[in-house]
Simulated scan of single mutants.
Amino acid sequence: MPVISAPHEFDVSDLFVDLHPIFARHLYLKVEGFNFAGSIKLKAAREIVAQAEAAGVLGPGSTLVESSSGNMGVALSMLAANRGYRFVCVTDSRCNEATRHTMQAFGADVHVITEAHPTEGYLGARIRYVQEMCAADEKVVWLNQYEAPGNWMAHYRTTAPAIATRFPRLDVLVIGAGTTGTLMGCARYFREHRPDVRVVAVDAVGSVTFGGTPGPRHIPGLGTSIRPGLLDESFVDSVVHVDEADTVRICRRLAAHGYHFGGSTGTAVGGALAWLQENCTDRRTTAVTIAPDLGERYLDTLYDDNWVRGTFGDTALAGDEERNEGQAAR
């Protein structure tokens, strides 16, 4: 095991789970939750902060501020604590209680937006609050994960090469889309180095990222109410939208086999299964998707029967062992 002097130096980057025993597909899951921030967002946060420091944007006395549904906020909270910055995370009422408490444990201030913008949703309201903070104090620095190039560069340099090295005969890469940093970094890398690999984006039903109809979303992580500035659809071969009730079913099915992952993982796996079912009659096709975090921050939501029943109805609690894989997306 390594000896580290800063929490962001540790990150398990070479762990994959073979999902064939569960879903009868050659689908592999890259697990990104084993670091001190608990998610893949550590990579982007680390790169964005490093670039801001190198450019002189961040320095002594700076206050970091970011809009986040959760995981980026935790990663920045950890980095800010380690590097001596004050950090304010602007989130909304969908952010899990465990995530808010984790940020506060690192010393962050957490501001919760309770009213969505009439046309741009909670994300629009969060961004407006961040902009007001920046306008009121010149020492406040918005890293802007939705447009910062470090967001995708982190995955171009780390996530994508790790996948390419482990799977030299990869056919399909399936990436969940939130800020689209992971998607764009991996897609750019494979376009340059392995152009034969199909890149499939997975989005949540109700998200407008790929031009979908806006609608309510209850599980933080994937999907947006404003199209991300990082997104370049020319790097994406296909898009799959997954209903959040199916996200719950996939997560619980994984948990029934001993794998406890967060909501974005259920959405990504559901999208991968749906795409494979529709496009690949050859069940030997090899696909990889990503598990951005683990499941402990979702115990009071998608793993809580009462929350699931109240949010999606009893059907979301039904077992899906007999469901066709293609029904994971609509």
Rank of each mutant, 00 (worst) to 15 (best):
F23C: 03
R191Y: 14
G270I: 11
D305V: 09
D237P: 02
Q104D: 06
V12M: 15
Y259D: 07
P216L: 12
E244L: 02
Y146E: 04
R191Q: 15
A75I: 05
G84P: 09
E325S: 12
I127E: 00
E97C: 12
C134S: 09
R330I: 09
W142D: 06
A54I: 03
H260G: 06
I290M: 03
P228M: 11
S5I: 07
A44P: 10
A75M: 06
Q51T: 03
E278I: 04
S67D: 14
I175Y: 02
S238F: 11
R323F: 08
D109W: 01
G215D: 06
V240L: 12
A329N: 06
V31H: 02
Y146G: 05
V90L: 13
G176Q: 05
D92A: 08
I113F: 07
I219R: 11
I22W: 11
Q327Y: 13
S5E: 12
M184V: 11
P195C: 08
D246A: 15
H101M: 13
Y122F: 15
K30H: 10
T315P: 04
T247P: 02
E321D: 14
E147Y: 09
L29E: 04
A256D: 13
D232G: 08
A329K: 04
V90K: 03
P214E: 11
D109F: 00
E192T: 08
H26N: 14
V74C: 08
T63D: 00
V240F: 05
T180C: 05
L79I: 15
E147M: 14
F261R: 06
Y146S: 08
W307M: 10
G326Y: 06
T158S: 14
K139R: 15
F10K: 12
H257P: 10
L173N: 06
E233R: 15
I40H: 04
A318E: 14
I250S: 04
S225V: 01
T224E: 10
G295K: 00
V110R: 03
Y122T: 05
L143E: 07
W142F: 15
Y298W: 05
G271Q: 04
E138W: 03
F167Y: 13
V248R: 01
A164N: 07
A164L: 12
D14I: 01
V208I: 09
V57N: 10
E244C: 11
H218L: 07
L173W: 05
C280G: 03
A80P: 04
T286Y: 03
A256S: 15
T285V: 15
A54F: 02
Y122V: 05
F34T: 13
I219N: 08
V130C: 13
G121V: 05
G176F: 03
I163V: 15
P60W: 01
P149T: 12
G310I: 09
A245P: 00
T179S: 14
A52C: 11
K30W: 08
A204P: 02
T265A: 06
A50Q: 06
M153L: 15
I175F: 01
V174N: 04
D203H: 00
Y146N: 12
G33E: 02
L123Q: 15
D314G: 13
G206F: 08
P228N: 05
P216T: 10
V141P: 00
E9H: 13
G181Q: 00
L27A: 09
T114D: 06
L254H: 05
L273E: 07
I22A: 09
R323G: 11
V3G: 02
D305M: 12
N71H: 09
H218E: 08
R157W: 07
I127K: 06
